[in-house]
Design a protein around this nucleic acid. Structure first.
Lengths: 143, 143
DNA sequence: ATCTCTCTTGATAATATTTATAAATAGTGT
DNA sequence: ACACTATTTATAAATATTATCAAGAGAGAT
């Protein structure tokens, strides 16, 4: 599964005229392998074994690139670090208010909300974001 | 309306044992008067006529206080400044992706989502956040 | 009205995340 | 292998927010 997704992503990048580099490849495959919605710092630490000299700027640059091409989604959390999700399928997130862990869940897409919001506000609505907050299973035990 | 809400808020603070100060009063009443979900900087600029020496730290401190007491809600947007909403009634937000403006809208509360998410993820869900993104009326014209 | 205790303010430094800059490096097509 | 250009690295800068602490000001007791 992951291997196929990586190939698809690489093709997409090639078609977009994006040059492939070892760092770029490593960041992308790490994102596709993990389900953990990592932060920049987590990616940095995970790859410093393979790339001891990699700059954090490289990670930021590539994540923005992947975002622009439509390969990853950025999840922002106020002043806390953003998290990055390479799972572009239709899903939502549950965020732990204690440890920050993010877990996926599915729910029938809220197309009604976008229509309703558009009528109500006059906005030309293009997307929405839904998250639930609470304690993850680990943090429930520890409290 | 606003006057009543201010009284209610002041009572709530007094009951919580919070000391009243001119700055605190000004920030709170400004938040209750405006419907614009202001940032810290906007609050700062709006009040510098009355309080030329007010520190931004004072605004941050008081907003956190109001948040803890349950008088305002913080809306976070990644690396951009947070916005603050003193309307604690049940509603959602439409955010303009061009100018950042936030407009309220109403929608039948998504209690189902929280239940579904809880079952799906094992989280003990306490709240949710829903936002729609798009172009506000002004920015639609200018594009 | 004044005293006193304690909380708050204001000024500034510190922290953290992200972006900008520029020289060195490395892809990729020819 | 060459040359052109994008990318990486290292570092500085920008931005938002929090921490620190001395000075100032509420509010209840006297």
């Amino acid at each position: 599964m992951s291997a196929v997704m990586l190939q698809t992503a690489l093709t997409k990048l090639r078609e977009a005229g994006v040059r492939m580099t070892p760092q770029r490849h490593a960041i992308l495959s790490y994102l596709l392998e993990t389900m953990s919605h990592p932060t920049v710092d987590e990616i940095y630490k995970s790859l410093e074994g393979k790339f001891p000299n990699m700059s954090v700027a490289t990670i930021y640059n590539n994540l923005r690139l992947f975002k622009d091409v439509g390969l990853v989604r950025e999840l922002t959390y106020g002043d806390a670090s953003s998290r990055y999700d390479a799972n572009m399928s239709d899903h939502y997130h549950a965020v732990c208010i204690h440890c920050g862990m993010v877990k996926d869940f599915h729910y029938s897409s809220l197309t009604d909300v976008e229509k309703e919001a558009s009528v109500n506000t006059g906005f030309q609505v293009t997307s929405h974001r839904l998250e639930v907050y609470g304690l993850c299973e680990n943090c429930q035990i520890r409290q």
